[in-house]
Design a protein around this nucleic acid. Structure first.
Lengths: 188, 188
DNA sequence: ACAGAAATTGACCGATTAGTCAAGTGTATG
DNA sequence: CATACACTTGACTAATCGGTCAATTTCTGT
């Protein structure tokens, strides 16, 4: 059974992912979580603190799972990376990427969000860089500036998700990813 | 002297660019425009109609100016394109890209915004494709699937702006753009 | 100058917002 | 059984939200 705080974290993340932080109604979050208002204020100081907690915890947990294979694998880093990139089933092209959404909405209007998203987006880049470093380490790839390449890859991924969201066509994501993979393959 | 409607269009666009559509306060827009509420409702049916008008008119006008050179030039399409891509002075890395911001915020929650942004993002892609087609026409580039390449380019640009917004570092944009240009150069 | 239209003013409305809090319930420990 | 702490309930507040509208001023064409 999920406890009250977890219910709130999940409902808040889902509402924010759907409507943005500013567009997320506190009463809708409470209704979705099945939690009363006073109860929420027992766990969080205010809407913003709940939002920050829900974003940080949810995204960090996802990333933990998503990039664990880099620690356990001993080879095939790039192929595994490509497979995951191509997997559209983990994507939500209607809502887009939660990281990008919140950066876009909040980074320039609230310093606390700015700090959090800088850290989360930085972790995203670091995860991709770790894959590239591993690939180079085991000789799947020529040495290169992996920080810059990781930046390029994350940018293109985010852009691809946005393109699919704008057009309503998941194929746009696939097309961008294929060209991105070609680009990376050129560095082997 | 700017008329009332234009004042509203400009103030609305600026407020929306800064705080998003949902975060943009009508009274702030009115204060910035120096226009009273009833006056605004004389020109627009509601907040949303004003927002849609301000977004469409402002972005279409910008694009008109931005890509006019494609019609007038007779060669050097790619070099001119690179120069403009590299020009960070036209970018606002704090607020990001207005197109991307509104797509992220609104495409999945309001059908009217969705339709408008699909059209605007589509025009963005079409403009880039036109440059590539011209470049191929005059032999600056080998023939290729310009629709897909344009999609890749727009995605990467949007991702680059987002990366710079997330990190607060304009250099991230520059780095992505340089790698993107290398990628395009590979197609010559 | 005058009529009529266009534009402006600003008070007002109901709905919704995030946030407060006193009272109550449940549970674990002495 | 009793005390204490964690948690829950839901009514309440003040502020803000987008939106309405009748009265008034300004502009325009004849």
């Amino acid at each position: 059974m999920e406890n009250t705080r977890d219910k709130l974290i999940h409902a808040a993340f889902d509402e924010i992912f759907s409507h943005g932080y500013q567009g997320a109604s506190l009463s809708d979050i409470l209704a979705k979580a099945g939690v009363h208002k006073g109860s929420m204020y027992h766990f969080f100081a205010n809407k913003k603190e709940m939002a920050l907690a829900s974003i940080e915890e949810t995204i960090l947990k996802r990333n933990m799972e998503k990039y664990r294979y880099v620690e356990t694998n001993t080879n095939g880093f790039l192929e595994e990376f490509y497979t995951r990139l191509r997997d559209t089933s983990v994507r939500d092209f209607k809502r887009g990427c939660p990281i990008a959404n919140i950066v876009q909405e909040m980074s320039n209007i609230d310093e606390d969000f700015n700090v959090l998203m800088k850290s989360i987006y930085g972790a995203f880049r670091a995860n991709i860089k770790a894959i590239l470093d591993k690939a180079i380490e085991v000789g799947e790839m020529k040495p290169c500036d992996t920080a810059k390449l990781a930046l390029f890859i994350t940018s293109t991924i985010e852009g691809a998700i946005l393109a699919a969201k704008a057009s309503g066509n998941a194929q746009d994501y696939v097309d961008v990813i294929e060209e991105l993979i070609e680009h990376i393959e050129g560095k082997r």
